[in-house]
Each structure stands twice: as structure tokens, then as C-alpha cells.
Simulated scan of single mutants.
Amino acid sequence: MNKIIELQDLGLKDYKETWDYQEQLFKSTVDAKISNRRNNTNIETKNHFLFVEHPHVYTLGKSGDISNLLVDEEQLKVKNASFYKVNRGGDITYHGPGQIVGYPILDLDNFFTDIHKYLRFLEEMIILTLAEYGLKAERSPGETGVWLDVGTPFARKICAMGVRASRWVTMHGFALNVNANLGYFDLMIPCGIRGKTVTSLNVELAQKTVDESEVKKKLLKHFKALFEAEFVGSLNIN
């Protein structure tokens, strides 16, 4: 099994351009698997991990409700934001500057063929990373992602997740609020869940900004341990 993961840090990149690039990598892996099955070959499939930061954008999953976006097209333009319907699970999410977005494009046949375990590992990576900053992050029953103060009136989401998988190949991933402008979350009902707020790491730590390159390193450390993988490639460190 190939547990080498090719790491790319794309920096600030348009959502649609990144989505197209994900689809290209995803299709390449799926096509290799189909070819292996049809031709009884053993082409080694590749695994990828993309870090990216997007300009302001709202995305709606295939089972999402458009009414959870609380602004119209003209209001989006005023906010310099865009909107896309996407082919991942989940409802509506926001991406923007100050948010670390990660897109693992893995052939789970190289790791384990269990999508629920995959999502729990992604959540665990976030939970372990936030623990290094002194935060007790948790899962919320029935709600994918990572939260603080679960089960209290102060429950707030710090990381959203939504994935797509076909033939055990994954795409899309997670969005961790690190230095996010939380005002943009007021323009939607986050993940379609009413009555719960959203937070960011810098807000929780009462800091103006948190070093995002440091957070990325911690995320990769925990991902590597959980998936028993090795990374090749490097981060964009300014």
C-alpha cells in the first residue's frame, strides 16, 4: 500500500480553480483504479494533500438547503464574495482569508476502507491540534466537524468538514478557522444548524493573529501519525 502523500500548499487560490484541480487529481486516481480492475494491472495510486486559502466564498453541498444562505447575489457582490454548489456532503459553508482549508485526495485502499473512520480521523487531527493551544475541542453527536463547549448554550463550531468519496477515493475536506473574519458567517446558517455560533482560534486565544504556518505543521504532524503516512513536498512559509 502506498502511504506516501504528496503535499502542496497552494496559498491564496480561487475556489473554482482549486475545485477543478481537485477534480483532476481525483479523476486521475479513480481512472487508475478502474484501469487496474479492467486490465488486471497494478498501477500504484497517488495520494495528495492540498492546503489552500480561498477568497470569500460560500459553498452548498449536494444535500444542502439554499435558504441557509441569507443574502442574494447582489449582496454577495457587495461583500466581494462568490457562491458555488458543490458535490460534497454537508450543507452550506464559508471559506475565506484566515481559514486553513485542507483537501486530502486519498485512495483509502492505501489506508483503510471506512469513510466514517476517515471522517473521525480528520476530526481527531483537529482536536489534537487545538489541544496544543490549550483548547478542549470535541465532536458533537450527529454533527460532522469540530466544536467547543459541546452540550452547553455556548457550543460553537471551529472547524467544518464535508467530503466526497468514490471507489474509496476522497476529495474536499476540512476548513479550520484560525484568523477568520467571523462577520461573514452571519450571512448564512452555518452547516444549516440554527442556534449555534462559529468561532476562530485567534478569538479563543484572545490574540490578534495566530501563526498559520505553525498550525499547518501541527495538523500535518497529527495527520501523519493517525494515517501512518509520510509526506513529500513543503509548506508555503512566508
Rank of each mutant, 00 (worst) to 15 (best):
E132F: 10
M161Q: 12
E138G: 06
F154R: 14
G142M: 07
A131R: 14
V150L: 04
P153H: 04
E138H: 06
K157G: 09
P153N: 02
R156E: 04
G162P: 03
I127K: 12
A131C: 07
V150E: 00
C159W: 08
E138S: 13
G151L: 05
M161I: 15
G145I: 12
A165C: 13
G151F: 01
D149V: 10
P153R: 03
I127C: 10
L135I: 15
D149W: 14
A165T: 12
L130S: 03
R156P: 03
C159I: 12
T152N: 01
W147N: 05
Y133N: 04
V150P: 01
L148G: 00
D149Y: 15
V163E: 00
G151H: 01
E138Y: 05
V146Y: 13
S166N: 12
A155N: 02
R167Q: 11
L135H: 06
V163C: 11
R167W: 11
R156V: 01
M161F: 07
G134F: 05
L128Q: 14
G145L: 10
L135Y: 09
Y133M: 00
L148S: 02
G142A: 09
K136I: 15
A160T: 13
A160K: 09
S140Y: 11
G145Y: 03
S140A: 15
I158W: 14
D149C: 11
E138Q: 15
D149G: 04
A160W: 04
W147V: 09
A155G: 00
T144E: 04
R167V: 03
L135S: 05
V150M: 03
T152I: 05
G134T: 09
G142T: 10
R164D: 01
T129E: 02
G145N: 11
D149T: 08
R139Q: 11
K157T: 07
A137P: 08
F154I: 05
K136S: 07
V146R: 15
A137T: 12
V146D: 07
A160S: 15
R139K: 14
A131N: 10
A165K: 05
K157W: 02
P141A: 10
P141K: 08
P153L: 03
A160R: 08
G151Y: 01
R139H: 12
V146L: 12
R156M: 06
F154S: 10
R164H: 15
E143S: 14
R167T: 03
G162F: 04
R139W: 06
M161Y: 02
V150Q: 00
A131G: 07
G145R: 12
E132H: 14
R156F: 09
A131M: 08
A131I: 09
M161E: 03
E138C: 10
W147M: 10
L148F: 12
L148T: 01
E132R: 15
I127P: 08
T129F: 06
G151C: 05
